[in-house]
Nucleic acid binder design. Structure first.
Lengths: 223, 223
DNA sequence: ACCTGAACACCGTTCAAGT
DNA sequence: ACCTGAACACCGTTCAAGT
């Protein structure tokens, strides 16, 4: 419970800040744990405080209300994922359409899967409040990134890249969510990991015109 | 508010049963309305009862607890969708892979979209309790139906039909959910309606071997 | 600067009493 | 057979008091 105070060297405010940082972290951790074991419905401010080893009043010093606490969790998770996707987009710029597709799918799967525990906890609260609103903002940002990325493909030009980026995100996000919400069973995760890249690649292929004219160009458009 | 009592001709118990039916329906409606305007978080047994024009006690005569009320809503909605999908499957048996794919996607979109209001209300509670469990059962049923359907395709044989059916459902379910949860905006629904069938068709094509050997068989497998 | 916990309004659920 | 609503335990949130 007592932890070293890593910020202790800093001036005046430091010791107290280190304590409060620990407090916030404890609250964060306690919330995730309770969310996983008991679900949103049974998540109680009293219980969070108890588990975190602080009093309710303390919790309300950092979060104006329970929603804010949940909101903070979702934000942290979404930010991590958005960052991962933007990194992936940077790495994939100018590659072939297949490479881009596989790269995006892998990055998404990795990001969501890296913190299955957190992801699952968060799906339970994602439908609440203004959280939907915030989710929208973040995802617009990701759509932008993917749209831009698509236009850089070296071997094809994607028609209506914005719609395609939107659809890609909906398909990836939705299918992963479905599997994680069902309990993230290994067998189902395996299927997802094997099939999702295929889904993306095929969809991208049909949405693009190859750059070099080829006699079998049809192959890349509709079946 | 007063409604004709359609079962009034029936013997003894009828009038009272008609009354209770009306009560249950009023509660159901009130719940959906409140869910849509205020969200799950603000859904209160008191408020539901008030809106439905009955007392709290009455509500507890039909639903042992609040969860049960929500559970009933989800069940009704899921049952309607499962039925729609099974109908579609029956109609599509023995058709071409393309026809099957388009048919499934259309049926799914129609079923979810027919009751956008209900669908949205329900996403908000889908993560709760044993509801996840029930969802699983229903979806196994739908996976079965689609798997069977896939094996009847007239012009191709689908490899690993169960995995493909699972993935199809995850992709359709997830992407539609994403769009509805974001507020079911017309522009986004339009994109979904245009692109989802493509996603499905391409994925199915790559997962199947054509039945008649053709020189350009490659076209139907990986790009 | 940060923490505590009793106090208050409100919610889920029950049950004795009504028709 | 169905309905009512006061009553109880518990939750979210506040705030005066502590260190």
């Amino acid at each position: 419970m007592t932890r070293p105070t890593p910020l202790a060297l800093k001036p005046r405010k430091s010791p107290s800040q280190a304590r409060s940082t620990a407090t916030v972290e404890a609250i964060h951790t306690a919330t995730i744990q309770l969310l996983l074991t008991d679900g949103v419905a049974r998540l109680t401010t009293t219980r969070v405080a108890e588990r975190a080893g602080v009093s309710v009043g303390t919790m309300y010093q950092y979060y104006p209300h329970k929603e804010a606490l949940l909101f903070a969790l979702v934000t942290a998770q979404l930010e991590a994922i958005a960052a991962a996707m933007e990194n992936a987009a940077a790495d994939l710029t100018g590659r072939s359409l297949c490479a881009i597709s596989d790269g995006i799918a892998a990055a998404w799967l990795d990001a969501k899967t890296a913190d299955i525990v957190g992801s699952r906890a968060i799906y339970g609260i994602a439908a609440e409040f203004d959280i939907v609103e915030m989710t929208r903002e973040r995802s617009v940002q990701m759509i932008d990134a993917i749209e831009t990325l698509l236009t850089t493909a070296s071997d094809a030009v994607v028609a209506r890249p914005r719609e395609v980026a939107f659809m890609l995100l909906a398909v990836m996000g939705g299918s992963v969510r479905t599997v994680l919400e069902r309990g993230a069973r290994d067998e189902e995760l395996e299927v997802l990991r094997a099939e999702l890249p295929l889904v993306c690649r095929q969809y991208l292929a049909v949405s693009a015109h190859p750059l070099a004219a080829r006699s079998d160009a049809e192959e890349l458009t509709r079946v």
